[in-house]
């Protein structure tokens, strides 16, 4: 079998890395968790936030008048 120094070099780098991969994994997991959490928050609250904004628009005093002024002939 032919010797492959590229693979040997790869092994050397991996050995030198030690257990740093676990630290990186924790950081990535934290990122993933944060993304997931934000995603779930958006999923949960975005539709109701839309409803709230819509209701603000309807309950704002003069909202109907403004619409009427915009098209005074209608």
């Amino acid at each position: 079998m032919t010797k492959n120094s590229f693979k040997e070099l790869e092994e050397i780098y991996i050995k030198e890395r030690g257990n740093a991969s676990e630290q990186t994994k924790k950081k990535i997991s934290a990122n993933i968790g944060l993304f997931g959490f934000i995603g779930h928050l958006i999923e949960l609250y975005l539709p109701s936030a839309g409803q709230v904004l819509k209701s603000f628009d309807l309950t704002t005093p003069g909202a109907k008048d403004k619409k009427q002024k915009k098209y005074p002939n209608k």
Partner: peptide, 17 residues
């Protein structure tokens, strides 16, 4: 995320290298 961790464990050293 555990499925993603499985892929991470398989490839992290290769990517790092």
């Amino acid at each position: 995320v555990n499925y993603f961790n499985l892929l991470y464990d398989r490839y992290t050293n290769k990517v790092y290298s």
